[in-house]
């Protein structure tokens, strides 16, 4: 097991290095941030001072090495736009995004998996057909439009929930969280619902397909022949057997949900990293873009690693292989 984990760790580091080169090269390939940073009628002296201050006079490979060196020290540079350390900037926005994403993914799984199992268990019942119709809609309808409809229905028309912002927060361990206050929860509900719909649809489909296939297997028939109840079969056998693909998708989808939070945060004015990246893209705020992309890549790799380890925990056959 330790050998396997080490091997995976080495792989992860290599992938991170490759991504760092790609991100750095990509972000530096176009546009001149100086044009954005300094007004065109600034003196040449001021321009050059700024260029030196940001290290933009160095050759690209030099800038990259400096960048790597700073990364190693946990220094992502300063945002051109906010004139504050990028790490602080992202750290101040990340909890909001994590909170939103976690709420969406957990909600989608907690609701989608049982409904999907039911739809796979009774594929021709009316409820199952309704669940599948909902999942087709969840798959097809663009997130941003659902967000608009949610705002229109629940915020504008019914006035039940706020249309945007994070609401009251509580500070726990120096980090602000919304879900611990009633007002924060009210603010969290719509954006989380919005962000979760696509994942919900995916979980439903996955659980349904897995259950449908499993119900025809000898494993389930044998459990039935032993007189086990349908509830035992679904909760002890089926759930356990479909858990592996679901954990994979849960992990992978956590990353993509994090990315899709960009859209939801924009619609609901949720002050997370998604809004930050949109702002930094439109103002060519390179350090923020780089840090954001590296952060997402890192999250992806960490999640992939966790998924692999979860595999081993869930599947005794794999445990034996890596032992």
């Amino acid at each position: 097991m330790p050998g396997y984990a080490l091997q995976r760790l080495a792989q992860a580091i290599i992938v991170m290095m490759v991504i760092s080169v790609m991100v750095f090269a990509g972000v530096h390939a176009v546009g001149n941030p100086i044009d954005v940073l300094i007004s065109p009628d600034a003196t040449q002296a001021i321009r050059e001072q700024a260029i030196r201050a940001y290290g933009l006079d160095q050759p690209l490979w030099r800038q990259y090495l400096d960048f790597l060196g700073r990364l190693a020290r946990g220094d992502f540079g300063r945002s051109f736009l906010y004139n504050m350390p990028v790490l602080d900037l992202i750290a101040s926005r990340l909890p909001a995004t994590l909170e939103l994403t976690l709420a969406a993914v957990i909600g989608a799984t907690a609701l989608g998996v049982p409904l999907g199992i039911y739809a796979g268990y009774r594929p021709s019942s009316i409820l199952s057909r309704a669940i599948m119709a909902a999942s087709i809609l969840g798959f097809s309808v663009p997130t941003f439009w659902i967000g608009l409809v949610l705002i229109f229905v629940f915020a504008v028309n019914l006035g039940w929930l706020p249309a945007g912002g994070r609401g009251a927060t509580v500070s726990v361990l120096g980090v602000e969280w919304s879900f611990l206050t009633l007002d924060g929860l009210r603010h969290l509900l719509l954006p989380a619902l919005n962000l979760s719909l696509f994942k919900f649809a995916m979980m439903v489909r996955l659980a349904r397909a897995g259950t449908r296939e499993l119900m025809l297997t000898d494993t389930i028939k044998f459990a039935r022949a032993a007189g086990e109840s349908e509830w035992t079969i679904l909760s002890r056998h089926v759930l356990r057997l479909i858990a592996i693909p679901i954990v994979t998708v849960f992990g992978l989808e956590f990353g993509s949900t994090l990315a899709f939070a960009v859209v939801t945060e924009t619609i609901f004015s949720w002050p997370g990293v998604g809004k930050l990246i949109i702002d930094s893209i439109s103002s060519l705020d390179r350090p923020v873009m780089v840090a954001y992309l590296m952060l997402v890549a890192l999250l992806f790799i960490v999640i992939n690693l966790l998924v692999d380890l979860a595999y081993a925990a869930l599947d005794p056959r794999l445990r034996a292989q890596h032992a």
Partner: peptide, 15 residues
């Protein structure tokens, strides 16, 4: 494994 929207976002911004 990388979300399509992020890629498109970055490219749209860069190009």
């Amino acid at each position: 494994s990388f979300p399509a929207i992020l890629l498109a976002l970055v490219l749209a911004a860069l190009l």
